[in-house]
Structures are given as structure tokens and as C-alpha cells.
Amino acid sequence: MKKLLILFLLLNQTVNAQFKNLLSDQSSLTDAYFLDDCDACGCSASGGSMGFNSMLSEKFIGVRYMYQKYQSRDGVFNNSPWIDENFNTVQLWGRIPVSSKMDVMVLAPYHFLNREKMTDSQSLSGLGDITLLTFYNLHQTQNDTATFHHKILVGGGIKVPTGVFNNKNNGSINPSFQLGTGSWDYNLATEYIVRANNFGLNTTLSYVFKTENHKNYKFGNQFNYGSTLFYTILVDQLQLVPQIGVAGETYQANQEFKEDVPYTKGDIFFGKLGIEAGYRKFSAGINVMLPINQNLTGGRVEADYRLAFNINYIL
């Protein structure tokens, strides 16, 4: 039983990492400062970099709420004012095993975005881009008595442009204020988990290939990395898993009509903190990400923090 729980926890961490990748899609989208199209934080919001925390089961359906705060420059000058942008996402997600070694994951976000411009305020709400992922367990330590247990996973996925993006949300303010990117994006990932006693370390790398949308806009490909240290506490039927880690994202320049768009390269490095609790068929979690270092869109967009809550039902 203990083993199974740990396994689920690790798997959760895996998916956690995957989601982090996908959420980092959001931040890459904010880098599209001057563009017609969504490069948006809110678009894909498959949003996992805040932490996925279905630690109790690799089979679940749940609801997650995520909040992201950004500030972007309303203007091209050093003293142009900063605008607050608030991205709220409610996400339905589920993880379904299709074989002993393979899982499929679905994420369907619904966004509520708002921002205060100098002259007026804007808000958007609607369905975002839906994400589908597959994971395959490549290798796993079989010997239960070993001190260190290793697990390696590989996976891939796509993001479908189901979210609407609107040309009118552009101008000199961060035009990533959109519900969808309008493009199909593809993801490859690998994850390595090592555990000993009640500790575990989950390290994930992923690369996102992005394509040109029907407005001839292509977001820069993105590389994500992260590592989380966690510890499992068991009290009767209640489990607690505090966790701490780092995560980072780097983006290539976006392209419009195959030309590099200036100020769209970037990178960001986060520290993260969270805790999850599970009881019988339900689990809940909270996770926060704080930027340690960032250089997004040449300094014209700043990520503040990200917060997530989730509640899951175990299948």
C-alpha cells in the first residue's frame, strides 16, 4: 500500500511537471508584446507549472483554479506605466490509464482575464486551448528493497487551438491578452524521479514546438526544466506532502511571417512551494510559484506570482 501511494505521488509529480511545461506555454505567450496575436498566458493555461497534485492517484478527474499576475508596460518608453493583468483559469482535468505503462491526460481550461488600461478596463472570458498528453513508463526500479528507486518516463502531446483569439486585442499593451493561440503546438518531455525513504526528487525537461497560426504568427519554441523535492507524511488515512522546488523556462523569438519579432525572446526562473493533502477518495492541494529571475520581452512584461488550488476525485 505504501509503495502504491508513493508511486502515485511520483506519478503526480510527473504530471505536475508536465503541466508546468504547459503552463509555461502561458508565460511564453506573454512575451508577444507587440503582436497581433495571442501569445497568451491565458491561452493554453494547461497550467501545470504551479503544481499538479493528484498525489494519491494516477487516475482522477478534478478541478483546478489558477491565478497568474502579470504586469506589462503600456508604452515603449523606460517610464511607460505598468498595467496589471489578472489571469484566472478554471480547469477541468483528468488522467486516464490506457495500459499498464501508458496514461492519457486531458486538460480543458476556461479563462477569465482582465486588465486595467490607462483609458479603460478590458475583460475576456471563454474556453481556452485543450491539451492532450500521453506518458510512457520507460524504466522503473523493480527491486522494492533497493535504497534508491528510479523511474524514467517519456511523453508527448498536443495543444489544440480551441480557444478564440481576437485580432482587436492588440496595440502597445501585452497582446497576449487572449483566450487561445490559434495554433497547434507539440510537446516532448522526459522525467526522472528518484526516491529514498520518504523523500523524492522529480526532475523534468520538456520542449514545446510551436507552429504558425492562421494569422501567420508563430510563437518561439520553448524549453522547460524543473526539479521538486518532496516529503511524504502519513497520519492514519490522511497524507500530507509538502514540496519545494525550482522551475525555469526559456523561449526563442516569436516570428511573424517568418521574421523574428523583436523583444520576444525571454527566460524566467521560479522558486516553488506547495502542499497537498489526501483523504480516501479525495485530494486537495495548494501551490505557489515566485519568480527569482526573469527577462521577458526585453523587460516589458513581468511575471508576478502564480497560485493554484485543486480538488480531485480519484477514479
Binding site: 490506457v98 495500459s99 510512457y136 508527448g156 498536443i158 497547434w184 514546438f209 492562421h214 501567420n216
Partner: peptide
């Protein structure tokens, strides 16, 4: 299960090929 896995994988990756830009 393997067949199922492979089928799923193929289904997923087929989208990679289908994309094309204007």
C-alpha cells in the same frame, strides 16, 4: 494493451504531421 498504447501514441503524434502553415 500494447496495441492500444501504440495506437494512442500514433493518434497523438499524427497531428504533428498534419499541421501546415499558410
Amino acid at each position: 494493451q500494447n496495441i492500444k498504447a501504440i495506437a494512442l501514441f500514433l493518434f497523438t503524434t499524427s497531428f504533428l504531421i498534419s499541421c501546415s502553415s499558410d
